[in-house]
Amino acid sequence: MLTKFQARAFFLGGTAVFTGIFLILTIDTHRQVPEQTNDSSITPQVAAGKKLWEQNNCMGCHTLFGEGAYYAPELTKVVDRRGRDWIKVFMKDPEAMFPGQRKMVKYEFTDQEIGEVIAFLEWCGKVDLNGFPAEPPLKKLMQPDTGTMASASGELPASVAATVALPPMFEQKSCTGCHRILGKGTPGVMLPNAVTGEVVPAPALDLVHQRKTREELIAWISDPQKVKPGSPMPKLTPALVSPQEVEQMVDFLLSLKAHTPTN
C-alpha cells in the first residue's frame, strides 16, 4: 500500500502537472477567442452595453451564453428572435407589453443606452458558441401541416406564398416573431393568456380575413389588451408601429382574400 510520503507526492505531482496543462490551454484559449468571438467588432457601444448589462445585474434573472439565472429567457439570440425595434419598445416598459406576466424591472434607460444594450446582445448573438443553443430537435414534429391541408392550419398553400410577396414590415416589426404569415415566421409559438392562464398558439394570419373585419383588425393590432384582456400579444403601437402602418398591414392581410381558394 502507499506510504504517506507517496500519497503526498501523488497530490503534489498531480496538481503540478494538471495546473501546467490548464495554463497551457488557457494561453491557447486566449489565442483563439478573438477570432471565435469577433473580438474586433467589440465597438465602444458594445462595451458600454456590457457595462450596463453588469451594472444592472441582468444575469440575476436571465441567462446569457446559458449562464445566469433561470427566471427569465435566455438572451444570446434575442436580437435574431425579436428584432431590434421590438426590444426597444419592450425595454421602455416591459409590463405594458406583457401585462400580468412575470415582471421585469422597468429601467429608466435613455434611447442611447438601450441602443448600447442591444448592440451588446447583438454581438453576443454572433459569437460562435460551438452550437449552443441547439435547434430544438422535436420542434418539427409539432409544426402544423402546410401541405394540402393548409387551410386547416389557417395558412394558404405554399403556391400562394411563392407568388405573393410579404411586405417587409411584417418581419421588421416582429409580427413573424410569433405568427406565421405566407410561410414566413415561427409556426405555433405557444403563449399564455395572463387572465385565463390558457396557453394558445399565436395563429397563422393568412386567413384572418375570414375571421375578422377591417375595423376589428385595426382595433386589435392597436391595442390587443383592450379587446381581449390578458392576451399575450404585445401592444406595438404607437412606439413600433404607427397608425398608418397598422392600416397598411390590415389592408394587406385583407388583400389575401383574393388568393384564397374557394371550395
Binding site: 501523488f10 498531480g14 494538471f18 490548464f22 484559449t29 451564453f65 458558441l129
Partner: peptide
Amino acid sequence: EKWLYIIVGLTFLSGILGTGHHYYYIGAP
C-alpha cells in the same frame, strides 16, 4: 491523513481540467 492526500490529489487531478465543463458553450475553443 494518508487518505486525505489521495483524495485531494484526485480532486485536483480531475477538477482543474474539469473546469472545461463550463467552457463548452461560451465561445471558447
